[in-house]
Write a protein that binds this DNA or RNA. Sequence first.
DNA 1: AAAGTTATTTGATCGGGGTCAATTTGTATC
DNA 2: GATACAAATTGACCCCGATCAAATAACTTT
Lengths: 226, 226
Amino acid sequence: MKTLRLTSTDKTLLLDSRFFARLPRPTAETIVEGAIVSTHEEHDILFRQDEPIDHVFFVLSGLVRLYRLGKDGREADVAVLPKGEIFGANAMFLEHRATANAQAAEALIVARFESHKLRQLAAENTEVAQALIELLCRYGKMTEDCLAEDRLLTAPQRVANYILSHCPDGLSSFSFRLPFQKNVLAGKLGLAPEALSRAFSTLRQSGVTVKGRVIEIRDRQALERF
Amino acid sequence: MKTLRLTSTDKTLLLDSRFFARLPRPTAETIVEGAIVSTHEEHDILFRQDEPIDHVFFVLSGLVRLYRLGKDGREADVAVLPKGEIFGANAMFLEHRATANAQAAEALIVARFESHKLRQLAAENTEVAQALIELLCRYGKMTEDCLAEDRLLTAPQRVANYILSHCPDGLSSFSFRLPFQKNVLAGKLGLAPEALSRAFSTLRQSGVTVKGRVIEIRDRQALERF
DNA sequence: AAAGTTATTTGATCGGGGTCAATTTGTATC
DNA sequence: GATACAAATTGACCCCGATCAAATAACTTT
C-alpha cells in the first residue's frame, strides 16, 4: 500500500459521483479536499469484518470485494464495488465496526475520508444526511436484489440477468466486455467459478457466445425468457 | 382492513421504539399524532413490489412479511418484521416504489405515516435524518446477514443460528417459544417448510427438542459447534 | 517466442435441499 | 370430546450446484 496525492482527475471523479454530485459544490469540495488516496495490490485487505474502522472509502479505480467469512474459512461476497462507489459508510452508524471484509479484487486506488468528520457533517448538514440516506437506500436495495436472486433464480438465470443488465434497451443483439475476471463475477453471483462456466455454456443454446472476457448476445428475447 | 384510532398503548409502543425514541420528544409526538392505524387479516397484502406507495409503516402488533416474486410465481422473503419494526421507509428515496411485496403473516395492526411529510421532515430536521440513517443501516445489515447466511450455511446451521440468537448469553440450556408459525420461519430462513422440519430433526442429535412451537435446548455449545 | 503462472473449462461425483404425496399432529369449532 | 381443517412431518425422488481432479486456455515475464 502506497499513499498518493489527490490528482485533479480523482477530484473530478469524486465530485461527479452520485454521492458528491448531489451536494452543494462548496460542501462537496471541502469533503473531497480531506481525502487520503492510497493504492493497493490485488488481494490486499483494506479492513476486516467486525474490525473498528474510522474511514469511509471511495473507489477511484479498480475493484473492491466485500465478503463475509464462514467458520470453515469459506468466503461469501456481499458486494462488488467498481470505480465511483462508496463503501464502509454503514460502519459509521454501527459502532464503527465493518460488517464485512474488504479486499482489492484487482489493482486498486481508493480515496478515504475520516468517518468521524463525515458523521459530524451529516449530523449538522441536512444535505449530507440526505445524500447518505440515498446511498444507504441504494445499497440496501442492491443487497435485497441479490438475496432475492439467490433464492429465486438458478445459476444460468442469474447470469442471463447479469448480461441483460448490461444490454442497452431496444437492442436485440449486442456485445460487451466483462468489467472484471470471471472469478469475481462468480463470487458476485454467489457461484463457484465452475458453476459460472457451466452457466455460460448452458446459455450458448440461447445465443450467448463467450470469448475470453467478451460476451456476445445474439437474441435478447431468448435470454429474457430463460 | 379496518381503520382504527390510535390508542395510548399504541402511542407508547411507537414512542418507545428504536426509531422514535431517539428523536426529541416533541418531534416524535408530532409525527406519531399523524398516524393512521389499520388492522389486517392474515394473508392481506399491504402493498406490492414496484407499486407506488406513499406511506411508511410501523408494526403495532402481528407480523409482516416482505417478499419478492419470481417469474414463475415463487416467493422469496427478504424480511420478516415483528412488532416495533418500521417498513416501507426505503421507498421514500427510491421514487416511492416499494422494493418488495408486504403481506400480513398473521393478524396485523399497523400505523402508517405519510411519506412525503416524513421525507420533508427528514430534509429539514437533522435528528429525523439521523434516525432514518440508523434505521437504514440496521436494515441493510440485516439483509447482508441474511445473504451471507444463505451462502455460507446449511439449513441446520441456519436454524441453529436462529435458535442461538434467542438464547440469552451465559445460559447453556434454555427454552423458548417461536414467535411465529414454522411456515414463516422457514420463509425467513430461505427454506421450504419441509427443509426446516428436517433441519430440526437433524438438530435433535445436538440436544434440540421441538414440541409444537416450543424449542428446548439442552446444550448450547453443541449447537454453536454445529 | 518460450516458459511459467494463473484463469477457465470440462468431467465425474456427491450432497443439500426442493417438490410431491401421504401421514401425523395440532388447533379450532361445534 | 368429536369433527374438521390447517400445519407440520416423513418418505421418495430428483435436480442444481459444490467440490475435486485434470486438461486447456490466457497472461506475464523474460
